[in-house]
Amino acid sequence: MMFITLLRIELFKIFKRPRTYIAFGAIAMIVLLVQLALKVNGKDFIQLYTDSQSDTFEIPYESMNNGYFVCVAVLHMILIHVPLLVALIAGDMISGEAGLGTLRLVVGKPIGRTELILSKFMASTIYVVMLLVWMAIFALFGSILLFGSGDLVVFREENMHLMNQQDVLWRFFAAFVFAALALTTIAAMALMFSAFSENSLGPIVATVCVVIVFTIVQQLKVPLFEQTINPWSFTTHMLGWKGFFYVEKTAEGVTIDGSVENPASLVKSAGVLLGYILLFLTVTVQYFKRKDILS
C-alpha cells in the first residue's frame, strides 16, 4: 500500500521535472530528423548497404524504403543513445535528492528504505517504458504514416534478411519489449551509482562511461575480449532487440514466417539482463539500507 503511494510520488516527481521532457523531446526530434533524411535521401542510405550487390541485383530502393525499414533504421541509431536519457533520470533518483537535501527528509519519514529504493526503481522502469512507447509512436507509427508499410529488409554484417510485411509488426513489439528490458538494466545500474553518490552528475556520467567502455570493448572484436568480457557484458545482450529481426530460413533459403534465428540466444540474453537487474538492485538495496544519510 505504502509502496503504491511511494511509486506515485516518484512518478509525480519524474513527470513534473523539465529534464524528463528533454528526453521525450530529443527522441521526437531525432526520429523526425531520420525520417526527413530517409524521405529525401533514402536511396543513398540504402546504397550504403547494398553497393556491393548493385551489379548482381536490381535493388528495389523505393519499396525497401518503407515505414518498417525507416523504423529499424531509427532504432539502430537511437537505441544506442537512449541509455544517456535513462541515466539522466535514474542516475538522479537518489543522488539528486541528496543534493536537494530532500533525501534526509524522506528517509526520516515512516517508510522503509527498501520500499523507497524499489519504488524509485519501479518509477525508472515506468519512465523507460514510456520513453519506448513514445519512441514507438513516433518511430513506428509515424514512419508507417509517412512511408507506408511493406516488406522489411534488415542488413547484417554478412547477410540480409527479408521479412514479409505481415510478419513484421510483432517483431517490433517484441523488440520494444526487449529494449525495455535492456534499458531497465541501465536504469538499475544508474540507480545503483546514484545510491553511492551525493551529486547528481556523477552517477549519470558513470553510467554513460560504463556503457561506452563496454560498447567499445565489444566493437573491438578481438578474441581477448570476445571470449572473456563480451559473453557477460550487458551491452552485448542489450542488442538483443535486433535478434527479433533475424529470421530463420529453410534449407532452400526461404524464410519462415514468424521465426527468429536462434531464439535460445535471445532467451539467454534476456536472462543475463535480468540477472544484472537483480544484481544491481540487490547491491543498491543492501547498500542503501545500511547507508548513513549524511547529505
Binding site: Q53, H76, F155, R156, E158, N159, Q218, L239, Y246
Partner: peptide
C-alpha cells in the same frame, strides 16, 4: 543459377547482435 559477389558490410556500419548463428 548465377554468380554472386561477396556481401560484407564495412565494420562499424552495423553493430550486430551476436546470436551465435554465424
Amino acid at each position: 543459377t548465377f554468380n554472386t559477389r561477396d556481401y560484407k558490410l564495412p565494420k562499424g556500419i552495423s553493430i550486430d547482435y551476436d546470436n551465435g548463428a554465424d
